[in-house]
Design a protein around this nucleic acid. Structure first.
Lengths: 151, 151
DNA sequence: CGTGAAGTGCAATCCAGTTGCATGAAACAC
DNA sequence: GTGTTTCATGCAACTGGATTGCACTTCACG
């Protein structure tokens, strides 16, 4: 059993829900990837797992606070492991060339002054641009046609 | 001819592109709605217009800087009229009950400290919560099942 | 064990968004 | 105006991420 799976099992044990293989697989995939990954990314990590079960496991993890679900710049869900309780909304950076999504560490919480009467539940900050590696290369990757949802 | 259509025609005349009915309709719909609207919202405003033509008109408007395209909390594109040239990235607020997306005015630009080597192209800030009206009501609207992309 | 509640797998479906291609409308030159 | 080229439109088909329904399996608990 991998280290990630160990941690995953431990985290699952602290919830009130069942410890199932689907949830174990999903969570350890999240943990081992370490960055905001799409369902497709994760399914590549666990090809034998059913697509739908993976969706459901991820959603359940998000409900439990063990993962967070964000939409990326292309409108696709991305999931990442998160510490339950610690409701930290950190910004994400998505490279417009290689499409990798990374977390940006910040000090202090993210806040925006809302108009009176509005209440904030969560905040999502997504920065688009070029990551370090792609800043150097600067040639578009993959399809040269119009921006389309990545496969 | 409505006021919005007047303004739209004027704005289109300043671009190098053609002034077509599709673009006129799309832009004046955007202007008259005044908030970040989905393709479906806009299509409701102009039901006779072809779906695809609307998409293309909106994308073209975004290219020209007359509109901006953002992804909302459900991963759906939202379009809003924008002043060309003024590249202002203001935060958006999306109500989790009525799904209305409104712009939040801020002073100064939005910035996040990126790690070294990263370059920023654009930034999207999306706050989820309850808008003024829905804060008072607090009962979920519409379907009571799981959160699904709005129709 | 056995029984009920919860989770899984599969197939079918939904829907936002895109693409290809034939037709139609703008702009521009004459 | 008329012709011509260029670009936009409309339609139909398609893509791919995400969801739902339902039968079946697995887990927890008595």
């Amino acid at each position: 059993m991998s280290a990630a799976e160990d941690v995953a099992r431990d985290l699952l044990a602290r919830t009130s829900g069942r410890i199932t293989t689907a949830r174990l697989t999903a969570l350890s995939a999240l943990l081992s990837l370490g960055r905001a990954a799409t369902h497709t990314d994760l399914h590549r990590q666990a090809p034998d797992m059913d697509r739908v079960s993976l969706y459901r496991a991820l959603d359940w993890l998000a409900e439990q606070g063990l993962a967070s679900r964000i939409t990326d710049a292309d409108g696709v869900w991305r999931y990442e492991a998160s510490v339950p309780g610690a409701d930290h909304h950190h910004p994400h950076f998505q490279c417009s060339r290689c499409h990798q999504t990374t977390c940006i560490e910040i000090e202090g919480g993210l806040t925006v002054r809302l108009p009176a009467g509005f209440t904030q539940e969560k905040i999502e900050v997504l920065v688009k641009g070029l990551c370090r590696t792609c800043s150097l290369v600067s040639v578009p990757l993959g399809k040269t046609t119009k921006a389309r949802r990545p496969a």
